[in-house]
């Protein structure tokens, strides 16, 4: 085992940390028949305990900070964090807002950024494929 274990089997947990729902809808679009990520073995799961990839949208509001850290710690290793959208990467339109604790990389290590407001589903799928490559690299290093 080792190399290739994550190939074609990547379970994704989606966490909204105060996003406007634009990115979230684009994530749902990736599951629809048009893009159908399940054919690559990518699946949206309901619990961070099952996840390999954390898909984070939104600029991390003050209320979501503890939840974000908790979800990050609940995810079993090896894991990859993907930030979807401008808000999570830089704060976006909410930059320097009074109620922000983010962007995401101030709180937890982020592996992949997907810029866009919102990004297209192709970009999200591409990011998840990159996450797979990163997981494989992590496994190979061990």
């Amino acid at each position: 085992m080792g190399l290739g274990a994550f190939k074609r089997s990547l379970w994704v947990f989606h966490l909204n940390t105060g996003s406007c729902n634009g990115c979230d809808i684009e994530i749902i679009a990736a599951l629809t028949p048009r893009y159908d990520v399940e054919r690559f073995g990518i699946k949206l799961v309901g619990s961070p305990r099952h996840a390999d990839v954390l898909l984070i949208t939104g600029p991390v509001t003050r209320m979501m900070k503890d939840r974000l850290l908790r979800v990050y710690n609940q995810t079993p290793d090896p894991k990859v964090v993907v930030v979807v959208g401008n808000c999570g990467a830089t704060g976006g339109v909410f930059y320097e807002s009074y109620n922000l604790e983010g962007p995401v990389d101030r709180l937890i290590p982020v592996d992949i950024y997907v810029p866009g407001c919102p990004p297209r589903p192709e970009a999200i799928i591409d990011a998840i494929a990159k996450a797979w490559a990163k997981l494989e690299a992590m496994e190979a290093k061990k």
């Binding site: 190939k7 379970w11 290793d77």
Partner: peptide, 14 residues
């Protein structure tokens, strides 16, 4: 796919 998923789950932290 189930075989791939199970192989991966055995790699993960418990």
């Amino acid at each position: 796919q189930p075989f791939i998923d199970i192989k991966k789950l055995f790699m993960k932290e418990n």
